[in-house]
Nucleic acid binder design. Sequence first.
DNA 1: CGTCTGTTGAGAAATATTTCACAATTTGAT
DNA 2: ATCAAATTGTGAAATATTTCTCAACAGACG
Lengths: 205, 205
Amino acid sequence: MRKIPEPTVLRLSTYRRCLEDFKAQTNLPFVSSNELGRLAHRNAAIVRKDLSYFGEYGVPGKGYSVDHLLKHILRIMNLRREHRAVLVGAGNLGRALLGYPGFKKLGFRVVAAFDNDPRKVGRKIGEVAIFPVSKLKSEVERKKPAFGLITVPAAAAQESANLLVEAGVRAIINFAPARVWVPPRIVLRNVDLTRELEVASYYLG
Amino acid sequence: MRKIPEPTVLRLSTYRRCLEDFKAQTNLPFVSSNELGRLAHRNAAIVRKDLSYFGEYGVPGKGYSVDHLLKHILRIMNLRREHRAVLVGAGNLGRALLGYPGFKKLGFRVVAAFDNDPRKVGRKIGEVAIFPVSKLKSEVERKKPAFGLITVPAAAAQESANLLVEAGVRAIINFAPARVWVPPRIVLRNVDLTRELEVASYYLG
DNA sequence: CGTCTGTTGAGAAATATTTCACAATTTGAT
DNA sequence: ATCAAATTGTGAAATATTTCTCAACAGACG
C-alpha cells in the first residue's frame, strides 16, 4: 500500500462525518464524489483520489454506496474495534469530551478518569469512575488502554504526559493549553481549542 | 502583501503557543528559527519562510526577539484588539470553552450565552449571563459580537448557525458534532473534537 | 579594524498535493 | 440490445509547499 498523505487522512475523518450527515438527512443509498465534495467543501477529484488510495469502491454512473464507504473508512482508520482510553483531568473539558457523542460511536471507551481534586475522587462522570492521580500507573497497567487524553490545566500537562507514557499508553491526545513533549514512539496529537478562533480572526481581519 | 498559504496561518498559531511556552520556561530574549522549529516539530527553513511573509524581523546571528515576535504574530492574526463573541449552548462544552485560558488571553470576550434549558436561563457561567435562545437576535444586534460559537447537540447545530447568521455575526466556530452550512460571506470553522483521536487511531493501526 | 561564528532571508530545487481531462464502465431507459 | 447519461479511477499537468543552499549580515572578541 502506498504511503497515504496526511491531508488525506484528515479528510477521511471529514468524509466520515459528511457521510453520516448525508445519510441522516437524505437516506439515499449512494453518493457521488461530486456531492461528497460539495459537503466537504472539496473538489470532486480529490475526493476520488483520496478514496482510490484504498482500492476501488465506486460504481461508475452511480457513485459510492454510503454504507459501504462508511464501513470502509472506519476500517482504514482502524476504528472497527473498541479502543480503551483514560482521561487525566475531570474538569469541564474532560466532562465535555466524555459527553461528546462521537466518542462512543467511534468505539472509544473511557475506562478510568484521574484527578487530584479530593472532592472529585471517588465520584463518577457518567459511567466512568474518578481515581486519584496516584493510582494512574496501576490502573493503566491493569486496564491497558492505548489512549491517554489530557484535559488538565496547562501547568499539569507535561507531568500528566510523563505519567501516561511511563504507565504505557501508546497515544496521547493533549487538549490542555500547553505543548508537551513525549518520546518519538508515542503518537502525540495536540488539540488547541482556540486555534480555529485565531484562524477565523485572521480571515476576518 | 502576497497571499499567505493556509498551512502558514495554522502554523503561526502553533508558533505563538510555542513562543509563550519558551518564554515561560527559559525567559530568554531571543529564539532562533532552529529552536522554534524544534519546539513546533518543524524544519527551521519553513519557520523562517513563514515569518518572512510578513516582513523581516530576525536578527542575523541572534534569531528573533521573543517579545517582538509574539506581538507581531498577534498583529498578523488580528488579535491585538478585543473580539466579542456569543456562545450558543451552555452545556459542558460551552463551559469548558469559557474556562479555557487561551480565550481571554487572546482577547475573546464572551458577551452572552444562550440555551433553551429553562433551568439554565437566568444563571451565569462565570461572568456570562445565560439568555433563552429567543433572545439571541436582539442580544446580538445590541452587542454586535463578530463571533458565534456553537456548542449545542448535533441536532440543533444548523438551527443555531441560522440564527447567528440572521442576527449578524461574521464568523462561526462550530464545535457541535455535525456539519453546518452558512452563506459564503460568513467565515466558518468546524472543530471536531474527535478528529485527532481518529488520526491517532489511524497511525496506531 | 579584521575575523570568526551563528543566523537570517530568499532564490532555486525538490517534493507533495491538487486539479484537469478523459477513457472506461455501469446504469437505466427505450 | 443499443444508446445516452452519469460517474469512476487515474495519468498527466498544474499548482502549492517544503527543503536546500548560500550570500549577506550582525555581534563578539582580540
